[in-house]
Simulated scan of single mutants.
Amino acid sequence: MYHTISISLLVIYSLIGYRIGLQTALTLINHTNQKFHSLPSYYGIFTALGALLPGLLLLATWLTLEYPVIIEIVMAKFPITANPADVNATKLAINDMLNLATGNITSQSTNPVMHQAAAYYTQLLYLSTILLNITLLLVAIGGILLAKSKISPSLTARNWVEAVMRWLMIACSTIAIFTTVGIVLSVVFESTLFFQKISIWDFLFGLKWSPQTAIRADQVGSSGAFGIIPLFAGTMLISLIAMAVAVPIGLLSALYLSEYASHNVRAWAKPILEILAGIPTVVYGFFAVLVIAPALRSLGTHIGLDVAFDSALAAGLVMGIMIIP
Rank of each mutant, 00 (worst) to 15 (best):
V289Y: 10
V291R: 00
F226L: 12
W209R: 10
L273C: 07
R216T: 15
V220C: 07
E274S: 05
L237S: 10
A244I: 08
L290Y: 07
A269W: 15
N264C: 13
D202Q: 15
M243F: 12
L276S: 07
S298W: 08
P230H: 02
G234I: 01
T281K: 04
F226H: 05
S210Q: 10
L255Y: 09
S262E: 12
A288V: 03
V282G: 08
F286L: 12
G206H: 02
A308I: 06
V307N: 01
L317G: 07
S298K: 13
V245W: 05
L237Y: 08
A312I: 03
S298N: 12
T281W: 03
P211W: 07
V307W: 12
F309E: 13
A242K: 04
M243P: 03
T235L: 09
A269E: 01
A277P: 02
W201N: 11
V282F: 06
W268D: 05
L305Y: 06
V289L: 11
P211Q: 04
A246F: 03
I292S: 01
R266Y: 06
L255G: 09
P280A: 02
V245E: 11
W201I: 04
E274A: 08
T281D: 08
I238M: 11
G285Y: 03
A312S: 09
F309H: 14
L273V: 06
H302G: 02
T301F: 07
S222Y: 07
P280R: 08
I229P: 11
I229N: 08
P271H: 02
G224Y: 10
V289D: 08
D218S: 14
G221P: 05
I292R: 03
I228K: 12
G285P: 01
S298G: 14
G278R: 01
S253F: 14
F205H: 03
V220Q: 13
L252M: 08
V291N: 03
I292N: 07
L252T: 10
S210A: 12
A315C: 04
Q219V: 08
A246S: 15
L204S: 14
V282R: 01
Y284A: 08
L252S: 11
A295K: 00
R266M: 09
L305Q: 09
H302K: 07
P280I: 00
A233S: 14
I292W: 02
L255H: 09
F287R: 02
P230W: 00
F232G: 09
L296R: 03
I303T: 14
H263V: 08
D218P: 10
G304K: 04
L237W: 06
P271M: 01
F309V: 07
D306E: 13
P280L: 00
I303Y: 04
I275C: 07
A233Y: 11
S253W: 01
N264Q: 15
F232L: 11
A261R: 03
I228H: 12
G250N: 04
I228L: 15
N264R: 11
G285F: 10
A217R: 12
A293I: 02
A269T: 11
L273P: 00
L231G: 05
P294N: 06
L317F: 05
Q212D: 12
V247H: 10
L251W: 10
I238V: 11
G234W: 02
L237M: 13
A315V: 09
G285I: 06
G300K: 04
S239R: 08
I238H: 13
A246E: 04
G304S: 13
G227M: 04
M243T: 06
H263M: 10
E259S: 07
G227S: 09
I229Q: 08
V307H: 03
K270P: 01
W209V: 00
L290P: 00
